[in-house]
Design a binder for these strands. Structure first.
Lengths: 184, 184
DNA sequence: CTAGGAATGTAGCAGTTGCTACAAAGACTC
DNA sequence: GAGTCTTTGTAGCAACTGCTACATTCCTAG
């Protein structure tokens, strides 16, 4: 493995932590370079351009978080939609997931704005989420699973979004209330 | 009313329509000025700075949308949380509300990034939403209303967010599924 | 030891950003 | 018509953006 590859991996890790900590606000090449402890010139040596750097870093973050989620609830758990609402909300509002959820909101918004490379990233992560949910909806009729999964994802993402605007306290209450939801 | 005031009002309206149509992506002063049919120099004559212009425009948009929402379901409707989920989802996914919901997502994300003046705007609009919901939760115990309202808002916003990433078709299914939710 | 590629530093370009200094034009009072 | 305030145009500044040309240092193969 060349120095270049080593550095690339190291930069992805460092910048991933930086994005989780600070969001997408400070993402000029010069700022990212400072966070990674290299020169901006080097970032464009390691990666083809800024979009490439961000895409690879976000992919890494998403993979890490997907692993966390998979560990939290085993795939194949045969839950009903009502049960999984409570579980999904509990898992995604755990402290360890908060930075990711917060960053995720920003990625979705950047995607909504059409800002490359976020649309592709957002779509890919969304598919990952939906797959994670569907794989645990064993007690829900198969035909209903896509709709149920999208609804659960909406609730989880929405709670992260409300937290931004109304604080953690109210969001925690809302999360508890959501755990009481059932499907008729 | 001076020419300045007249122009200010006209600019707010024009730029409001522009934001609803194109989102927050194209919001440099020069772009906004072009959309409003004035020079960027004039925007900073009518308003103290860019943040002022955006804040006033967003306030106008929010007021318009609040009016639409108030018309859709009369305040004081004594609904249960389960019933209001269905109604709120129906109202906010109506075609007329879509541009607003889309813009709203972008505002929340900008707020999450701490970008002035969006945090204040997002907080204010969120309070408006929560008030709208609570005022219609007559059949829910009063103590539970804040949590229920925040949960319903999360679901509504989350559906708008999922639409960005997964398209309107799946979101419509998720919205229908959400209408089957009840609280136990 | 040396040739040649890999790796890095320096400097800067061209574009965009929010905003401003300056002055000219128009409107309105006296 | 003189003077004054409101309104508008021209031009540009300083900071930042992603990115690049060019030169230099370093490491390794022969």
């Amino acid at each position: 493995m060349s120095i270049r590859d080593t550095q690339r991996a190291r930069v992805i890790e460092t910048i991933g932590a930086h994005l989780l900590a600070t969001g997408l606000a400070q993402t000029s090449l010069r700022q990212l370079a400072a966070a990674a402890g290299v020169s901006d010139r080097m970032l464009l040596y390691y990666f083809t351009d800024k979009a490439d750097l961000l895409a690879q870093t976000m992919a890494r973050i998403a993979a890490d978080s997907a692993g966390q989620l998979a560990d939290a609830i085993p795939p194949g758990a045969a839950l009903s939609a009502g049960q999984l609402i409570g579980e999904a909300v509990r898992v995604t509002s755990a402290p360890a997931m908060k930075p990711f959820m917060r960053l995720w909101i920003e990625v979705v918004a950047a995607a909504a704005r059409g800002e490359a490379p976020y649309p592709a990233i957002a779509h890919q992560i969304t598919q990952g989420f939906l797959g994670w949910i569907e794989a645990r909806l064993g007690a829900t009729p198969e035909a209903e699973r896509p709709a149920a999964a999208a609804m659960i994802l909406a609730l989880v993402d929405g709670l992260a979004l409300v937290e931004v605007c109304s604080g953690a306290a109210l969001t925690a209450q809302a999360a508890n209330y959501a755990a009481r939801l059932r499907v008729i």
